[in-house]
Design a protein around this nucleic acid. Structure first.
Lengths: 324, 324
DNA sequence: TTGAAAGCGCTAACAA
DNA sequence: TTGTTAGCGCTTTCAA
């Protein structure tokens, strides 16, 4: 079933059917009704692929991220998909595992599929590679010199507020559970942590240790550090998932959170309210970020937005039970 | 840049270029090299949309589910996307919120986009509507009379094993925190719970209460029931998320889990190991289910599989800290 | 207001 | 082994 059949049955040309389909002005009302009747009878629906080919547009965007299983990303993906759907765009999901080869393959695949734009979360992709992508791009969580839009979260103020809050609670020795070395956010959060604490007389490089953005690793590492430094009374985790690991470690060691140890996370994933004790964290406006990313991307796709923009979002302290 | 330009520069016809692109046998080696050189120089990549149009295939599948934010679904989506990618298919993500209209719109949209097949998780879509979908379908979590493949989880044995386990632990009064009325799995789990316990002399319809697959609701509801029935010593939650709510409620009421109350969930989402105490649960082989769904779907798309199949997966008891 | 026809980029049947 | 050409289903220009 195609436009030709509709045209035949309605006794008009395919051009006229096309005009009706696209709500063009210049169609006689009588003709229009005739065509619409045939369309309804046949339950005809135009083939988007043919349209794509002609128009050179697909009304699809892609979302490249490390792993949808990582609890931060479903919330982001949901926001992106919601906003895309609202604007008539479908959303292709790509898990890259931060694997460079996978990223390249996906970019090639979506390019060939004439996807209209892509939102990328990646530490591994290079500036050059970003520039070579042949469609509008929004980079998330990373500022770049490449000619694309970028969106970041303000780690400086976030970390500062987190540490200040722990201090205001009376914490006298604050550790940091940091993320992977190659992650830009992890690096920044470590950097600003150091900036906030390295003048303190209690400071010691031992207080800085790594959980790799992973739960199990964080449990182990935190157990070790709590054992070696029983006087730690505050802990800033580089993301919520690691903070969960820290809570687990404290629980297993019978360290009382929050009375002996205050734990604060970073991200504000919705699971934070679920754990026991519920997690105090620096909350990112995840949904808002997703919506903004799509708006920016579509702005460029539609040619409304011609300049490349950079947007920095801020975190908000969400007090819950894991801090005193 | 298109096949025509490549043909010109290589001094051959588009047909020959096409043959090279598709690795056809009947191309002179010399010609082949010439064409490949031009392709590499131009960094030419064929346009998939044109191929789609000609072939009537898109190498895309869609995944319709209620909400990627619900922690069960990212794990499923990950498995599906992994397997699809392995087979050269892209995966379109659609959140329906169990909203009937959204489902219909998505199905229409992906049909027009010539998506090759769809994996659906839905309670709301009717048998008729499933039958009217104009592409291969795999229904997840629901058996159907419609002419499509279906995959379910065996609630009967799962619930039986959960309750038996609680009994074996010495539980003398076991409650059930059930899911939404309109959810087939929730209904079945409730049904089989009743079957297992309604002959017990301690049984009481009050032990059955609802958490709507939602964390907050489950916290509230569990607090109420634990307050009214302080002798409840076992709790079977209809899914893990509700079990987390139950754990939270017990914690807030200072009910000792697992010593005074054993809690068991259903699903086996990876977050179960994160919470405190970690959650005992009836674990679904989520990844395996996702892979199987894709294999089945692609089987039908490729015409290898011509019969509609039904597959029933079984849960496995995963013992952790929330049960004595 | 309508229709004929070209063309989006590709593949494949047919011919040479 | 290679080229010519029709055609996948649509939109749009141009002419009527």
């Amino acid at each position: 079933m195609n436009i030709k059949k509709v045209a035949e049955l309605a006794g008009v040309s395919t051009a006229t059917v096309s005009r009706v389909l696209n709500n063009k002005e210049n169609v006689n009302l009588h003709t229009k009704n005739k065509v619409e009747n045939v369309i309804n009878e046949l339950k005809y629906e135009p083939n988007d692929v043919a349209r794509m080919l002609y128009k050179g547009r697909s009304n699809m965007i892609a979302l490249l991220m490390p792993d949808i299983t990582n609890p931060f990303f479903p919330e982001l993906a949901r926001a992106i998909e919601d906003e895309a759907e609202k604007e008539g765009y479908a959303c292709i999901l790509c898990n890259t595992d931060g694997n460079h080869l996978k990223e390249k393959n996906y970019i090639k695949a979506i390019t060939q599929k004439q996807v209209d734009g892509v939102i990328i979360v990646s530490n591994t992709i290079s500036e050059n590679e970003i520039d070579e992508i042949n469609m509008p791009v929004v980079m998330l969580d990373r500022k770049t010199k490449a000619n694309v839009h970028s969106i970041t979260i303000d780690n400086q103020s976030g970390v500062k507020n987190a540490i200040s809050y722990l201090k205001s609670l009376g914490c006298k020795k604050i550790g940091h559970l940091k993320g992977p070395k190659d992650d830009i956010n992890a690096q920044q959060r470590e950097y600003y942590y150091l900036k906030e604490v390295n003048q303190e007389k209690w400071f010691d490089l031992d207080l800085l240790y790594s959980g790799d953005y992973d739960f199990d690793t964080s449990v182990k590492a935190t157990k070790k550090i709590l054992t070696n430094h029983s006087d730690i009374d505050g802990l800033f985790a580089g993301n919520d998932l690691m903070a969960f690991g820290a809570l687990k470690a404290a629980h297993d060691l019978k360290v009382d959170v929050p009375n002996s140890l205050s734990v604060i996370g970073f991200d504000g994933i919705s699971f934070g309210k679920t754990v026991i004790p519920s997690l105090t964290t620096m909350e990112q406006p995840i949904y808002e970020i997703g919506v903004y990313a799509v708006k920016t991307l579509l702005g460029q796709i539609d040619g409304r937005e011609t300049l490349y923009t950079h947007k920095n979002f801020f975190t908000k302290l969400k007090k819950r039970e894991s801090t005193r």
